[in-house]
């Protein structure tokens, strides 16, 4: 077993473990904290794929900014007894669980029995793609147009937020 695969297994196992803990904890603050652990594990996985830029962004944006937002919202909502959130078992839940299980089986089947996809890019190419320089140059040449559309989406979102949330109109 190479060092890389050891690191991968540790990170992957803790990512799955923390993800399970996120959905099973009763206390929402605990769930949020485990989600941060999950984000850090994912950032580590990106690093093993030579994607330095995405790894840093994952920590800055998700583990940093978005999680602060999560914790603030949890504090503001001031949830009382968390036990109320979970009600008993109903037939709807059983049916939903059945569908989810079927979907999981399908994905597992596909993963096991399908031909592995031919490698789309070589390792050296992957290393190059992960760097900030490469992403920057692509963003302002080939992907300039989608980049500009994103700015339109943000403008529309600002207008929308004002329309919906401004205290007094006119």
């Amino acid at each position: 077993m190479t060092l890389e695969s050891v690191i991968f297994s540790v990170l992957a196992a803790s990512a799955v473990g923390s993800a399970l803990l996120v959905v099973t904890r009763r206390n929402p603050v605990m769930s949020a904290l485990y989600l941060i652990v999950n984000f850090f594990c994912l950032a580590g996985l990106y690093l093993t794929l030579h994607a330095q830029f995405i790894a840093i962004i994952q920590i800055l944006v998700y583990a940093g900014a978005i999680m602060v937002l999560f914790v603030f919202v949890i504090m503001l909502l001031n949830l009382g007894d968390e036990r109320k959130l979970s009600d008993g078992v109903s037939w709807k839940k059983i049916v939903a669980a059945g569908f989810c299980a079927a979907l999981l089986m399908e994905f597992v089947y596909i993963l096991i029995y399908s031909e592995p996809s031919p490698a789309v890019m070589s390792a050296s190419m992957a290393t190059e793609i992960g760097t900030v320089e490469y992403i920057g140059s692509q963003l302002f040449t080939k992907f300039l147009f989608p980049f500009e559309i994103t700015s339109l989406i943000l403008t529309a979102a600002i207008v929308g937020a004002i329309v919906l949330a401004k205290r007094k109109l006119d």
């Binding site: 992907f143 989608p146 559309i149 994103t150 339109l152 989406i153 529309a156 329309v163 919906l164």
Partner: peptide
């Protein structure tokens, strides 16, 4: 954007731009 797309990224961004405005308009 959706009708003129030649890339899945443009398809996605077009759908998002359209949907975002419609969510707000529905709650106008």
């Amino acid at each position: 954007f959706m009708a003129g797309a030649n890339d899945l990224i443009v398809v996605f961004l077009g759908i998002e731009l359209m949907s975002l405005c419609l969510y707000v308009l529905a709650g106008f």
